[in-house]
């Protein structure tokens, strides 16, 4: 289970969806594995706006990563699809604090190259444990929770 995926997962119990305690799920006995994946800044740039930053910080801390900045990096605006020339005012104001290469590479390592191979994810609201085996999490609910 990649850390990027973990950022999109919460408790499967319907009653937990409204509780802020159910997200992110908390790791227990997590065994990590690193793999090598080609660095692709344009994918990161597209996906970072969808990442829940507070949740990512919690997950990273629980797994022992200390490289996540406290604020989500300020990103280049996505290249526009239109072939109209950008108005000059946009050129002046779009000098953002572009996330530096190091921060982006660290995020790439954490989000895409780091995987939880074994362990459990626990809901902070209902306490339900979801097992991860060989990188695969099981979110099927027992019948007493499945309503």
């Amino acid at each position: 289970m990649k850390i990027l995926t973990v950022n999109f997962l919460t408790c499967a119990v319907k009653a937990c969806k409204t509780s802020p305690l159910s997200f992110p799920l908390h790791f227990r006995d997590a065994e990590l594995e690193q793999s090598d994946i080609g660095y692709n800044p344009s994918f990161l740039r597209n996906i970072l706006p969808r990442v829940d930053w507070e949740a990512l910080k919690v997950t990273a801390t629980e797994l022992g990563f200390t490289t996540v900045p406290s604020e989500k990096p300020n990103l280049d605006p996505a290249p526009s699809n239109t072939d109209l020339p950008a108005p000059e005012t946009a050129m002046e104001t779009s000098e953002p604090d572009v996330a530096d290469e190091k921060v982006m590479r660290d995020l790439h390592t954490l989000l895409l190259e780091t995987e939880v191979r074994e362990g459990k994810m626990v809901c902070g609201n209902c306490g339900h444990e979801y097992k991860i085996k060989e990188g695969i999490a099981n979110f099927l609910l027992p019948s007493h929770l499945g309503r």
Partner: peptide
């Protein structure tokens, strides 16, 4: 393989995917 994020076991009716248009 680099483009495969993850596979997991779940049911659409009780999806573990969090809210949001992502």
């Amino acid at each position: 393989l680099e483009r495969y994020l993850d596979g997991w076991i779940s049911d659409l009716t009780y999806s573990p995917l969090r809210e949001g248009r992502w």
